[in-house]
């Protein structure tokens, strides 16, 4: 079984409180924040590796990202994936999810022979949840997002997806595009030998021309949505302040609760 896992290099989420908007340029500043593979994409890699262990075949990683993310993507090879494809071109910059899905679909089609395409349900930075569904549509594959269980039997695939306070059971067959939720599995730790072996695994970079794409369909110019201004969440009103002994403060609060109508 040949499986592709779409991965996205993202700034490490634990440092998101350090991200600021430069007041002069209005651009994001995220200097010094290390890049990692989007955490839930590692669950997708784990799922792919487990299927490979069960059914054989190979696992390829596909990512649309700038060229300097090569080392980040290599971690997926160190985890156990067999090959990596980095889809990288200036013409891909500024893509929204649809333009990203077009590039990924072109790369996946060029790789060819894929039975299953997995990816994380959402990225930690953009967090849209769009890619699994949009990729599925553009590839012409059936697709599901927020996958929490996956059982491959003879020709039927049984799956569960997450919904508010519950789940839905699905049945389907290959080929599929699946967006993996964190609940699906626990990604394995990378072994040090994996790090060593990863250095010699095939790593291919394809640009716009390799994928035969029209620049008007990629990047910012190929994106139906366009980014406007950025903001930090804003607040600013003046509170009426009280300070004093706990008994007096409790009295004040009770009065406010009564006025607000939540304490009879």
């Amino acid at each position: 079984m040949n499986i592709a896992v779409c991965v996205k290099p993202v700034p490490e989420p634990r440092h998101y409180d350090k991200i600021i908007i430069n007041p002069a340029t209005k651009l994001l500043e995220r200097k010094g924040i290390p890049m990692i593979i989007n955490p839930v994409d590692k669950n997708a890699i784990e799922a792919a590796l487990q299927l490979k262990e069960q059914f054989g075949g190979k696992v390829v990683l596909v990512s649309m990202a700038p060229p300097d993310t090569r080392e980040t993507i290599k971690e997926g090879l160190a985890m156990g994936a067999d090959e990596a494809y980095l889809l990288s071109d200036r013409a891909f910059a500024g893509a929204d999810t649809l333009a990203t899905a077009r590039v990924l679909a072109a790369g996946l089609t060029k790789i060819g022979g894929l039975d299953l395409i997995l990816t994380g349900s959402a990225s930690a930075d953009g967090g849209t949840n769009h890619i699994p569904s949009q990729l599925g549509e553009l590839m012409g594959f059936a697709h599901l997002n927020h996958l929490t269980e996956l059982h491959l039997e003879a020709s039927t695939i049984k799956m569960k997806t997450k919904i508010e306070n519950g789940y839905v059971e699905y049945e389907g067959s290959l080929p599929l595009v699946l967006g993996v939720a964190r609940e699906l599995n626990t990604p394995r730790y990378t072994t040090l030998m994996g790090v060593v072996i990863a250095q010699n695994k095939p790593f291919t970079t394809w640009g716009l021309k390799d994928l035969g794409l029209d620049p008007s369909n990629t990047g910012l110019s190929g994106s139906p949505t366009q980014p406007g201004d950025l903001h930090m969440p804003q607040h600013g009103q003046k509170a009426q302040m009280f300070a004093g002994e706990p008994e007096d403060m409790a009295g004040k609060i009770i009065a406010i609760l009564r006025t607000a109508g939540v304490l009879d």
Partner: peptide, 14 residues
């Protein structure tokens, strides 16, 4: 080296 940096990342993750 890049391999050593990746090793550090993997160790740190664990």
């Amino acid at each position: 080296s890049e391999q050593q940096e990746l090793l550090r990342k993997v160790v740190r993750d664990f």
